[in-house]
Amino acid sequence: MSSTADKALGLLRFLPRVCLANIRNNPGAVKKSKRGRAQHGGDKHGCGNKGSGQRQNFMRLGYETGNNPFYLRFPREPYYKGHHLKRQYPPLSMLDLQKLIDTNRLDDSKPIDLVAILNTGLYKLAPDQHQFGVQLTDEGADIFCAKINLEVQWANELVIAAIEKAGGVVTTAYYDMHSLQAMLNPKKFFERGVPIPRRMMPPPDAIMYYSDPSKRGYLADPAEISKERLVLAQKYGYNLPKIEDDPSYQMLTERKDPRQIFYGLHPGWVVNLKDKVILKPEEEILVKYYNT
């Protein structure tokens, strides 16, 4: 122990008991809410003379104090036209995913989907800001060795190869904004007592991606996907592990319906967490609505 702590403890032994009556705040703990006047910190009130120190008017990006700014000086080239309307997929690296599995935040004995990733609390998503799910990036693809059944929203070729080399399966799946809102916090969603929404089909500009077998889209033909798995294995030069012979074949082949949000729970069901029951609609019109 340091001498400071020792001295303080030694002092305490000879002093009366510490109680509310004989302690005081640390110096500077209570801040004066008043602005100093006259000789007591008046004049400039500690903010210096003029300018941004007094006014906190930090200039906006690109502003050149009255010059014709650089970004307006030349004719416009609309590279980023409509950028505020485009779908975003915030990244999650394969290294992070491996770390989540290593620290037992994700259970690799069950299929890993967006709900599982969000439930770790270590990945944030804001559907209202046009964020539509996880983009798995290839950082750490060379060390990745978990055998998982993964469902992400965006993955490139190297990521798909790395997962399939390790004996896993990957699917890319689209969720609309309302489904994502339910997935953000399933507990909160179930407590609302509303039926589980049905997942919408991807918008026209995304339907090609999600029905492409080389992207492992969830709307692609499974036979085409197994062919593409072999093609990718040959391209990257690894032996494709046979998932048919795998002991966890059941887990690796578990898939969601294109209308489904949570594994095993169908759209239209209402989950009652208090009584631990599930209400399933029987009205013909509702059954028809949620099945199509």
Partner: peptide, 17 residues
């Protein structure tokens, strides 16, 4: 509507929580 207490269905609820 049908009120069910199927343990298999409930295991999927617990997985989502």
């Amino acid at each position: 509507y049908e009120v069910t207490k199927d343990p298999v269905d409930w295991s999927y609820v617990e997985r989502a929580l």
